[in-house]
Amino acid sequence: MNTNEGTVDLVPDATVENVARAALLAALTGAFAYVAFPNPVSPTDITLQVLGVFLAGILLGPVWGGVSMTLYLVAGLLGAPVFLGGSSGLGAFVGPTGGYLLSYPIAAAAIGAIVHGGRATRDPGSVGLLRLVGAMVVGTAIIYALGTVGFALAANVGLYEAFLVSAVAFIPAEALKMAAAVGVVRSDAIAAS
């Protein structure tokens, strides 16, 4: 009797780890949506979601950072209460914050590409402060650009007015989120040494 035993190639460990990390950062971003503060000069609250975008790009790189934020959007689209104030569904994408949401995968990918210098990832703790902050500034510019357009369309206002209330009004909060992201990366690098 001839029995052939074959082997089955499983999903590589690195892929499983990256999927798990992407899902974790997507869930963290959803949790950050519940941390909201009123913005006195904008009808849109300040949340910590953008901190999740920063961390996804920095920690996961361009590919998996973008995947993470795409998972986040798909979860919200399918009804998980992961957007501002526990909202979800298609309405969030056509409302005043829809442009921000749609920008998250693009911004995370751009941040990751700048931090890691391409598609391959490296230890983000070894990246210089200027590069980290520069990457987050680029990511913020992407978020503000799409967020401003989305807000202008949803609120039926001009781009200048939309830019003032949906971008400029958030600059101090984004600076604090950048500092927090740097702190996370630096504390991880210190703990590893």
Rank of each mutant, 00 (worst) to 15 (best):
R131A: 03
A92R: 05
I106Y: 07
A110M: 12
F163K: 00
E174I: 06
A120P: 11
V63G: 09
A120N: 11
G125W: 03
F151D: 07
T121A: 11
N39Q: 13
I190M: 06
A14T: 12
L159R: 02
A33W: 00
A92Y: 12
V127N: 00
I58K: 05
G125T: 10
A33L: 14
N2V: 15
A173N: 08
Y100S: 09
G6N: 13
L77S: 02
A110T: 04
F170L: 02
G117L: 01
I111R: 01
V94D: 11
M69P: 03
M69N: 09
I143G: 05
A181P: 00
E161V: 10
V137H: 03
V127P: 06
Y72K: 07
A180Y: 07
V63I: 14
L48Y: 05
I106T: 02
A162M: 03
I171M: 06
G30Q: 09
I46R: 05
M1K: 13
G118V: 06
A109F: 15
F37M: 13
A181W: 04
V127C: 04
L24F: 13
I171Y: 07
S87H: 08
G57K: 10
M136S: 14
G128F: 01
G89M: 00
G112E: 08
G89Q: 02
V157I: 15
G66P: 02
D13F: 12
G89P: 02
R131D: 08
L73E: 00
S42A: 09
P81G: 01
R122F: 03
L101R: 07
F93H: 11
I171C: 08
I143E: 04
V82W: 06
V8S: 14
A22Q: 07
L101N: 02
G147S: 11
V149R: 02
V50K: 10
G66M: 01
L48H: 09
V41L: 12
S103T: 04
N2Q: 14
M136Y: 09
A189I: 13
A56Q: 00
A154F: 06
A110D: 08
D9V: 11
P81Y: 07
Y160V: 14
V157Q: 14
P124V: 05
L24H: 04
F93T: 00
S187M: 15
Y104R: 04
T29Q: 11
L59N: 10
F93Y: 03
V168G: 06
D188F: 05
A167P: 04
A113L: 11
A155W: 01
F170S: 04
F32W: 11
W64H: 06
T47W: 08
A191R: 15
V133W: 03
N4L: 15
G183T: 08
V157M: 15
A108T: 10
A80Q: 11
S126I: 10
M69G: 02
